[in-house]
């Protein structure tokens, strides 16, 4: 673990000493980061220019893997469309909801706050229990939803929720929303606790009269860096939707109606052993996420400037 670094007894602006100490503090994280993340990312990017089946020697093929994506892959555009659709709908929704819930909960006294926080963090705690939704939306009349609807007389025949193109993507979005709020929600909760309370007092004196005013003029600007974190986590989780989809709808799903990029990458890599192509798809996915990350960063910057 970390040893306590040399206290520089020198002077106030101890340039060199402070820099050394800084690098020492950074070293444990960065060295493991380089080993376990940076080198693998680098090699994956390199691999995307090769044809590699995990057995024979990789063959350099230039940008062929990338060309293939756009010209020679029958499912790529469907899968890309699904991924974008899920991302654009559930991402912002989940981002806003996790903030709104955290903000409203933050108003309550201690005990109420703990209980409510627990309710909303519960999905993250049940771990891999999203298969419960499979039970709920099961296609026979044993499924809870079918059973309920039949007994209420809305339908007479059980609906194949997860096989029916009309319903499956909505269901997946609801489940994804249910699952994805945990991290952002708790980060927001503790971020809100960090907002300087004196600002609220000052705001009230300066004429902030409703909680919504206060939210806009005081809370949001103070929360900017946590909001950025939360947004990045949403981008990360929403573009990587995979287990939810494969557990609920299987892979490939009916007419590829809900297949997303990550299951496709896993299929290409694990089932077809085309590691080069899988790497190229990952690089593509990365740039797409990076694009959204930059847009979101710019948008959040604007929020501060208007104030």
């Amino acid at each position: 673990m970390k040893t306590k670094t040399i206290p520089t007894s020198k002077s106030k602006l101890s340039g060199a000493g402070e820099n050394t100490a800084s690098w020492l503090l950074l070293a444990p994280f960065m060295s493991f980061f380089i080993l376990c993340t940076l080198i693998p990312v680098g090699s994956s990017v390199v691999l995307s220019f090769f044809d590699y089946d995990m057995v024979s020697t990789p063959i350099f093929t230039g940008i062929q893997n990338y060309m293939r994506m756009f010209t020679d892959d029958s499912v790529f555009f469907t899968v890309l469309g699904n991924t974008l659709r899920f991302a654009v709908i559930t991402g912002p929704l989940s981002f806003l909801l996790s903030f709104l819930l955290a903000w409203l909960i933050n108003e309550f006294p201690h005990t109420v706050r703990s209980i409510l926080s627990f309710l909303f963090y519960a999905p993250a705690l049940v771990g891999n229990a999203y298969y419960i939704w499979q039970v709920a939306f099961s296609g026979d009349s044993f499924g809870y939803v079918n059973n309920l609807l039949i007994s209420l007389g809305f339908i007479t025949e059980p609906i194949q929720w997860l096989k029916d193109v009309a319903y499956n993507s909505t269901i997946i979005m609801v489940v994804q929303l249910w699952m994805s709020m945990g991290v952002s929600f708790l980060a927001n909760i503790s971020g809100l606790q960090n907002v300087n309370t004196e600002l609220y007092e000052a705001g009230a004196i300066d004429g902030v009269r409703s909680r919504w005013h206060e939210l806009w003029y005081i809370t949001l600007p103070s929360m900017k860096s946590i909001l950025l974190f939360s947004a990045v986590m949403q981008i990360q989780s929403v573009f990587s939707i995979s287990v939810v989809v494969t557990t609920l709808a299987g892979y490939p799903s009916v007419n590829n109606s809900v297949d997303t990029l990550v299951p496709l990458i896993q299929d290409v890599g694990t089932a077809r052993y085309e590691m080069g192509y899988a790497a190229a798809l990952s690089v593509f996915l990365f740039f797409m996420m990076a694009f959204f990350r930059i847009v979101v960063g710019k948008a959040l910057d604007l929020m501060g400037k208007q104030d």
């Binding site: 820099n19 800084s22 690098w23 990312v41 691999l47 990365f286 990350r293």
Partner: peptide, 27 residues
């Protein structure tokens, strides 16, 4: 801190978060 390169290093860390972890398992 005031060390040079901290901004760029942090950007790298941040963006690494977005790289699909499945593809990293082989390397």
């Amino acid at each position: 801190s005031q060390i040079k390169g901290r901004k760029i290093l942090f950007l790298i860390v941040q963006f690494a978060l977005l790289y699909n972890s499945y593809t990293l398992s082989v390397p």
